[in-house]
Amino acid sequence: MIALVDYGAGNLASVRKALRACGAVLLEPAAPADLDRASAIVLPGVGHFAATASLDESWRSAIRGRLEAGVPFLGICLGMQWLFEGSDEAPDVAGLGWLPGRITRLPDRTPEGGRLKVPHAGWNVARATARSPVPGLQDGAYFYFTHAYAAPVTGATAATTMYGSPFASAVRRGLVCGVQFHPEKSGAAGLAVLGAFVGGVR
């Protein structure tokens, strides 16, 4: 069973629907202890980083414990950003710190000085890095993004996307993965990522 964690950051309906379409059997944990019954964890989320404050110390330690035990994890959008140390969007709210680095606001200028719209809302290409790809993520495929803050390109970066400058559109360390885009809203390319995650859990 895959635990789909609801911490009040946006609407879970579309993630739930897409995971089920990929064959997932879902558990929606009411308390951190419920994560013990899960063979994998999906942490979705959309909106403001401050919403992750709902993941209090009991949730943080439970999730950290499962990740240390080698349970596969997929963070989506805010759920991916939360893996990092924190975000400039809500400086008082700590991330999990599983990955080094900090979430920063997307630039509203290209390096050449042209204006860029923020949020980055729409379809863009993810370029997979050869070293540690996220399963199912097809290099060069288009995915749907909607975010104003993004993760830096680090050793944990599994894919990059260009919006003025490159940011990490997917991350991976071991079985812990995260995607900045919304696989549940990215058509066949997104379902391939969710399907590979669900398939890897069985």
Binding site: G114, L116, K117, G122, W123, N124, Y142, M162, Y163, G164
Partner: peptide
């Protein structure tokens, strides 16, 4: 001036 976003950012239909 807003210039077209660079590279791969798709125009949406």
């Amino acid at each position: 001036m807003t210039r077209p976003a660079p590279d791969t950012f798709a125009r949406r239909l």
